[in-house]
């Protein structure tokens, strides 16, 4: 589904990603772990289509399309979703209007009719309930005045409504208390299926206790230095990133 080959990316002349290879197949859950500054968020944002990055080498293919040539809205319409580490506040635009606009753009692309107000409300209410979100958040401006936990849950709500094929979650666990974390993890787990791929970008192993990944990658200084099963995350938690970075330097 997603195939990243020898990807090199620079920001303002400084190389952040230095040869990433990553293959994600439908139905898989991948975790990309790494210390601060390793390039995890850059990778997630680049894949979602953020501007301001220079791809100096390599390629990214998504469903056999040249993903790097697509503007962000086309990627989203083709099923790519990023849950932001820092969700953006959009003053004056209600969450309901935002979600409806996004959902209808994506449905249009998929050749589906636009949802009417009633169907939309029914759909969103159900998803909000499962995430333990207050329905009042629909009439509030997008993320404005939301608590940290509400913002993160709002990202998961968008994912649940938009039903992407490739969902990337950037540090979705940060700032969540244990109850909110469980709700968010349940929300993600409910979306696991044979057609959908999920990529979790995280610094800590905590989230992976609740969403067990198929593959764990460790990113360090712009490279994937080790890949393994779920047990790799546990080892990292025990020994820290220093352990791997040393190991890489020795080898």
């Amino acid at each position: 589904m997603l195939s990243v080959k020898n990807l090199h990316v620079a920001v303002e002349g400084k190389e952040i990603l230095r040869g990433i290879d990553l293959d994600v197949r439908p139905g898989e859950v991948h975790a990309i772990m790494g210390p601060n500054g390793s390039g995890k968020s850059t990778l997630a944002q680049l894949l979602a289509g953020r501007e301001g990055y220079q791809v100096t080498a390599g390629s990214v293919r998504y469903l056999d399309m040249d993903m790097l040539a697509m503007p962000p809205e086309e990627r989203a319409r083709a099923g790519v979703f990023l849950a932001f580490q820092y969700p953006v506040e959009i003053p004056g635009v209600s969450n309901a209007l935002f979600l409806k606009t996004a959902l209808n753009s994506i449905r249009k692309q998929r050749g589906l009719p636009e949802l009417d107000a009633m169907d939309f409300l029914t759909l969103v209410r159900d998803k909000m309930k499962l995430l333990g979100m207050d329905e009042k958040l629909l009439q509030r401006a997008v993320n404005e005045g939301f608590s940290g936990g509400e913002k993160k849950r709002n990202e998961i709500l968008q994912m649940a409504v938009l039903e992407p094929s490739l969902a990337m979650l950037d540090e979705t666990d940060s700032g969540l208390d244990i109850d909110a974390l469980k709700l968010v993890a349940d929300g993600v787990n409910r979306m696991r299926n044979a057609e959908r791929a999920i990529v979790l970008v995280t610094h800590y192993q905590r989230l992976l206790e609740f969403i067990v990944p198929d593959v764990v990658h460790v990113l360090s200084q712009g490279r994937i230095v080790k890949s393994g099963g779920a047990e790799l995350a546990v080892e990292l938690e025990q020994y820290g990133y220093g352990w791997l970075e040393n190991e890489v330097q020795v080898s």
Partner: peptide, 13 residues
């Protein structure tokens, strides 16, 4: 940042 956020949800520029 706001423009990118909206576009990343499928909304055209």
């Amino acid at each position: 940042d706001s423009l990118f956020y909206l576009r990343s949800r499928g909304i055209d520029a």
